[in-house]
């Protein structure tokens, strides 16, 4: 499967990444290389092999339901561009 330039622009938009024409062209070539590799792997006969959802053949470790984290919002917010009354402020978003 080969991507088109429109696919690249759409993916960039969905990921909110601003790219210009040259970057889109470069990304297209790189992504198509990746898809080429995937195509090679997909050509391998995997009949009878159960699909895995993760590269490691182990299962999720679970933690006990206990509060282990303390309030560090002052520390976290010290690197935030804009904070008020404990809230992170971001440019207005309303749908």
């Amino acid at each position: 499967m080969a991507l088109s330039l429109d696919d690249v622009r759409r993916i960039a938009h969905l990921a909110r990444i601003g790219i210009d024409e040259a970057e889109a062209q470069a990304a297209l070539a790189q992504l198509n290389d990746v898809f080429g590799l995937i195509a090679e792997m997909q050509a391998v006969d995997t009949g009878g092999v159960e699909p895995m959802s993760h590269a490691l053949d182990v299962v999720q470790r679970l933690r006990e339901d206990a509060v282990t984290e303390t309030d560090q919002h002052a520390l976290f917010q010290s690197i935030a561009p804009h904070v008020e009354n404990g809230l992170y402020l971001v440019p207005k978003v309303i749908e």
Partner: peptide
């Protein structure tokens, strides 16, 4: 939660 009221041109975020 996003708080749209009370901040001029901003949205307040409570995580």
């Amino acid at each position: 939660k996003s708080l749209h009221e009370g901040f001029h041109d901003f949205t307040g975020i409570d995580l």
